[in-house]
């Protein structure tokens, strides 16, 4: 299998008044074609920043410090004033125009809050025209609207509602419109940042179903960012667990749930309620994550970890591949470390 997306050594920093916060710290990730990679973690772990870095849209005062974002482009893109060659490209090396040609066309992004992600003064149809004409300049407005109507129909929205304004739609329908805009140009990679968190559970289930269908229909690969492990269990092929800007564990979905390796993953799974197992006792992790502006040396989970050892306070543990296939950043699995 080829990698559609390969992130190497990515770091993102936010310059705040109190100091510099490393929101994404030395991250390596791979996403294979036609797979869904789940990116999970709690608030402030850097998962959204990571998603936005791939689009190179980290908001001010954030900045990508170093790293490569390698993307496998399936066709050369030619646009007014430039072009991008097909093949494996490093998104970090593209200029603003090249990046813009890729955004929306090859990489699509869906934001958390459908209520605020559409321009309230622009009709749904014009949202479609805009994105289509931004990438295919010779498409006429009528044709763009027709394509928009087809997409709405696929998503179960009456095509005549294309002339409506966003406020005339319910939350679930707006998120469907967002998804529709996302897939309008048949992108290769869909990044969905908490796409269902703002929605009610029934609509959430409907949208997750629709995303799965679309993924098959359009051969999409997906990066699904969420704090909800239940959502990932149903949709992801692989899951990466993040904590304080670092990837703690990457594993196949089944093995992550059956045999979590990192102590943080283990604790997290014990804390997740399961509606099918009402008698499960929920655990919690005492304490809170360390301040990113004032990071601690070594493993950031150490103060909350019951297996913490001396070595954990020295260097951050590297992400290493185990014989069982998982990748874990924890000294418990490093050979030659005495487990005291």
């Amino acid at each position: 299998m080829t990698n559609l997306l390969q992130i190497e050594n990515l770091s993102v920093e936010y310059k705040t008044r109190r100091g510099i916060a490393r929101a994404v710290d030395n991250v390596f990730l791979n996403l294979e074609e036609n797979k869904t990679l789940g990116l999970a973690g709690e608030s402030g772990c850097g998962k959204s920043t990571l998603g936005l870095s791939i689009m190179r849209l980290v908001p001010h005062p954030g900045r990508i410090n170093e790293g490569k974002i390698l993307f496998n482009l399936d066709e050369s893109l030619i646009f007014e004033g430039g072009s991008v060659e097909k093949g494996q490209i490093d998104l970090m090396q593209l200029d603003d125009n090249q990046m813009r040609a890729i955004r929306g066309r090859k990489l699509a992004y869906i934001f958390q809050d459908p209520m605020t992600s559409l321009n309230p003064l622009i009709r749904i149809g014009d949202h479609f025209t805009e994105i289509i004409q931004a990438h295919e300049e010779d498409v006429k407005k009528d044709e763009a609207i027709n394509r928009g109507e087809e997409i709405l129909e696929t998503l179960g929205i009456l095509p005549e509602r294309i002339t409506d304004y966003p406020h005339q739609f319910s939350g679930g329908m707006r998120q469907r419109v967002m998804i529709g805009l996302g897939i309008a140009l048949r992108p290769r990679l869909l990044i969905a940042d908490e796409p269902t968190t703002a929605l009610d559970v029934i609509v959430e289930a409907q949208i997750l179903d629709e995303l799965a269908t679309l993924k098959k229909q359009f051969n999409l690969s997906m990066l699904l960012i969420t704090h909800n492990l239940g959502v990932l269990a149903q949709t992801a092929d692989d899951i990466a667990i993040m904590y304080t800007g670092r990837v703690m564990e990457i594993a196949k979905t089944e093995s992550l749930f059956e045999d979590p390796k990192h102590p943080y993953t283990q604790c997290l799974l014990k804390a997740v309620p399961d509606v099918r197992k009402p008698d499960k006792t929920l655990a919690w992790i005492a304490g809170a994550p360390p301040d990113l502006i004032d990071p601690i040396p070594g493993c950031m989970f150490r103060p909350r970890c019951e297996f913490a050892m001396e070595i954990c306070a020295t260097q951050p543990p590297p992400l290493e591949k185990l014989d069982t296939g998982q990748r874990v950043a924890c000294y418990l699995y490093t050979k030659g470390v005495s487990k005291k």
Partner: peptide, 8 residues
């Protein structure tokens, strides 16, 4: 039934 179950 709509609640996502944390069990693949």
């Amino acid at each position: 039934s709509a609640i996502p179950v944390p069990d693949p």
